[in-house]
Simulated scan of single mutants.
Amino acid sequence: MGVEIERKFLVTRELWRPRNDGVAFRQGYLSRVEDRVVRVRTAGGAAFLTIKGRTSNVTRSEFEYPIPVEDAQLMLDRLCERPLIEKTRYEEVFGGHIWTVDVFQGENDGLIVAEIELGSEEEIFDRPGWLGREVSGDPRYFNSELSKRPFGYWDAP
């Protein structure tokens, strides 16, 4: 079984600058129920169908499969719930780990989130200076939730 152990943090905009060009992501949800989400995503020139289970602490099951880009684009345009998630993803290496930094656009403009995938929930890791408050336990920051209630409509983060 595929398992994802991930911690999520806000990024301090004034302290972080991308070191590469990033990759454009467009993603949408075919299903967003409490026990699972089914996501379609294009990332650069690739596309994926992903099924994620319910989160327990910072761990959840995850299954991801490559699909034809043309199929993904049709699903995003015709089948996925609205709004879609649009973001640019950057990778940053720090302390022996790869951090992904997502800069959101569209209805989630203004939100920047960093994620780190770990081998265990107890794994110790170094935190870059641009890292802000941890939001791993706040479901509002799940992409599936951001597609239901975008950041741009929040009263305060």
Results as ranks from 00 to 15, higher is better:
Lys52Val: 08
Gly53Asp: 08
Gly53His: 06
Arg54Ala: 05
Ser56Pro: 04
Val58Thr: 00
Thr59Pro: 04
Thr59Ala: 10
Arg60His: 07
Ser61Asp: 13
Glu62Gly: 11
Glu62Met: 14
Phe63Gln: 13
Tyr65Leu: 13
Ile67Cys: 05
Pro68Trp: 12
Val69Ala: 13
Glu70Ile: 10
Glu70Val: 14
Asp71Trp: 14
Asp71His: 14
Asp71Asn: 15
Asp71Glu: 15
Gln73Glu: 13
Gln73Ala: 15
Gln73Pro: 05
Asp77Tyr: 04
Asp77Glu: 12
Arg78Ile: 14
Arg78His: 13
Leu79Ala: 10
Leu79Arg: 01
Cys80Ile: 09
Cys80Phe: 02
Cys80Val: 10
Cys80Gly: 04
Glu81Cys: 03
Arg82Ile: 03
Pro83Leu: 01
Pro83Tyr: 01
Pro83Asp: 01
Pro83Ser: 01
Ile85Leu: 02
Glu86Val: 05
Lys87Ser: 01
Thr88Ala: 00
Arg89Leu: 06
Arg89Thr: 01
Tyr90Met: 00
Glu91Val: 12
Glu92Trp: 12
Phe94Leu: 02
Phe94Asp: 04
Phe94Met: 04
His97Asp: 03
Ile98Gly: 04
Thr100Cys: 04
Val101Met: 04
Val101His: 03
Asp102Glu: 04
Val103Asp: 08
Phe104Asn: 01
Gln105Phe: 15
Gln105Asp: 15
Gly106Gln: 05
Glu107His: 05
Asn108Val: 03
Asn108Ala: 01
Asp109Cys: 08
Gly110Arg: 08
Leu111Glu: 14
Ile112Val: 15
Ile112Trp: 13
Val113Lys: 04
